[in-house]
Write a protein that binds this DNA or RNA. Structure first.
Lengths: 117, 117
DNA sequence: TTGACATATGCCGATATGGACATATCTTTG
DNA sequence: CAAAGATATGTCCATATCGGCATATGTCAA
């Protein structure tokens, strides 16, 4: 199966650090390419390429504004990511860890007793 | 910068569909490799390799159990992913979209008026 | 010890990806 | 129209990753 292309899977698209930073920069307001490039301290072509990926995967939208192109956030594509990861929330919670250990302990005991029986 | 290795970055580790499925399967209880392979309908070596990545990145832990090795979930590494994505929650909300459009409209008007002045 | 399991690993090939650099395209302005 | 500015794209290279397959390693039972 390998992984889906960065241009078609949000999980893969945001696996790239710079793209995550771009999305963060786009919170609240649109920004032109050069501004993003400066903010990230990376070259303009590189920025454009990341933006293209983000555009194709649907995480940003573009708007022509005279000489420049304003990129804006379209975070809806991140919802599936959130949906997936939220399903694990209980598992990184300390209280749950304790409960989990407790249950595991019971199960262990159960198994041991079972064998002994 | 490229992206961090799958073995060192949770974002990249879970960018692989099969690895996400493995983590889901490990919710609630530990499982041996073969069981995971069967459930995912992929080969055992492939499963072992994914598990190795997940182990190195810290999302699962192993426990020797006689002949088999039981893999268990350690979701703490997913918390940063959640932290990041939750920061976008407001942006995929419809109400926010409307508010956003409204604000954008105001800003646009502002700019236009500014120029005209 | 031998055989049957269960799992991990090494090697190979195919491919996606990201970065650098040069350059094309489009818009605005003089 | 020419020049400048903003952005996109093509080419080339290096590398990470994934899958398949064969095989090594480790464990348990007879």
């Amino acid at each position: 199966m390998a992984r889906a292309a960065t241009t078609s899977d949000a999980f893969n698209a945001v696996a790239e650090p710079q793209r995550r930073r771009i999305l963060v920069l786009l919170k609240g307001r649109e920004r032109p390419v050069n501004e993003l490039a400066r903010a990230l301290r990376i070259t303009q072509p590189r920025t454009s390429k990341h933006l293209r990926v983000l555009r194709e995967v649907g995480l940003v939208r573009v708007r022509e504004a005279g000489q420049q192109r304003l990129y804006g956030l379209d975070a809806r594509g991140l919802e599936p990511v959130h949906e997936w990861v939220i399903g694990f929330e209980q598992y990184w919670n300390e209280n749950f860890d304790r409960l989990n250990a407790y249950v595991k302990g019971l199960q262990e005991k159960e198994r041991t007793d079972g064998r002994r029986r």
